Simulated scan of single mutants.
Amino acid sequence: MQYIIYTDESEKKGRYFGNFYGGTLIRSTDFDYINKELNKKREELNLTGEIKWQKVTENYLEKYMDIINLFFDFVKEDKVKIRIMFTHNMYQAVGLNEAQKGNEYFLLYYQFFKHIFGFQYSNPTNEPISLYILLDQLPDKKEKNEEFKKFIYSLQYQEIFVESKLHFKSMDDIGEATSHEHIILQCLDVVLGSMEFKLNGKDQDKPPGQRLRGKRTRAKEKLYKLINKRIREIYPNFNIGATTGCSDLSDRWSHPYRHWKFEPKYTKVNTQYNSKNK
């Protein structure tokens, strides 16, 4: 068994929320079938270009809805797990040194991968499971990106991973993906983008001087509403702006879809985010 994981990131600092990270996990026993069916659907819809949230338009809306519906069929069956992490701008970290501030992107990415899937609850068997990760293109210099991959690789020596018998076969199992070659990563981009769009109030944006919202904004809102509807088929009354609750800690793994509103341990409240702004 192998867990195949794609990760993506979005808005660093939006109007209200920032540091958006997304991940999707698929078991190797399901991967080939899911990948094949999503690519087959893309060909049926004649979506020849890369599927991305930023490319959602009125003309392509129905096609995007079709492929995202198929993607969420797999999520609902727990064949695809999705995790979204973000921070609220109201809670600002304090006590960080300059190195930590400079490495904020990677430090948050590390926390995201370490905790977001609830790996410590993922393997009740005695059989080892390997990890294969494809990160969306990392934004920094090659040396810094390679250093970050080594930190991810070292996670396998921590208690959570040792006890769960999770490991990397080699450093080559941590790579960077060219997103237009990976349909699963493209679907994740759409889901992550839709959450950032809604949480930062972009669904209400109007062009300067205009009374009505633009066609693209209205199309994106319809796609977001479809995604929210599919999530609520799994979790009625799902709150996209809060950490998804647990009836048991093992839900961090067993749930097919979860959100994590990450809050630093030591924070100060940014007072510009008063109750009205919230």
Rank of each mutant, 00 (worst) to 15 (best):
P124K: 05
Q100A: 09
D78L: 09
E147V: 02
R83F: 07
Q156H: 09
V162M: 11
S154V: 00
E143D: 15
E62M: 07
Q156N: 04
E104T: 08
E147F: 14
N89Y: 01
F106P: 02
Y109V: 02
G95I: 00
Y91N: 05
P128C: 10
D66A: 15
K165T: 04
K79E: 10
H167Q: 10
I67L: 10
K114W: 12
Y157G: 01
L131Y: 09
F72S: 10
K169E: 15
P139W: 05
F113A: 00
S130R: 07
D136K: 05
Y157I: 00
F72H: 07
A93P: 03
F151A: 06
S122L: 10
Y105D: 06
E159N: 07
Y132P: 00
L135N: 15
E104P: 00
P124E: 02
N145G: 12
K165E: 13
K76V: 04
N89W: 02
I67H: 07
K150M: 12
I152K: 03
K81E: 07
P139M: 08
P124I: 01
L61C: 11
V94I: 14
K79D: 12
F119N: 01
S164C: 06
K144S: 14
L108S: 00
Y157T: 03
E146C: 04
Y153G: 09
N126S: 15
N126T: 06
V162D: 06
E127T: 14
V75W: 05
N89Q: 08
N97C: 08
K169W: 04
V75S: 08
D66W: 00
F119M: 09
F151T: 02
S170R: 04
S164Q: 04
L135S: 13
N69V: 02
F161V: 05
E143T: 10
E98I: 07
G118I: 02
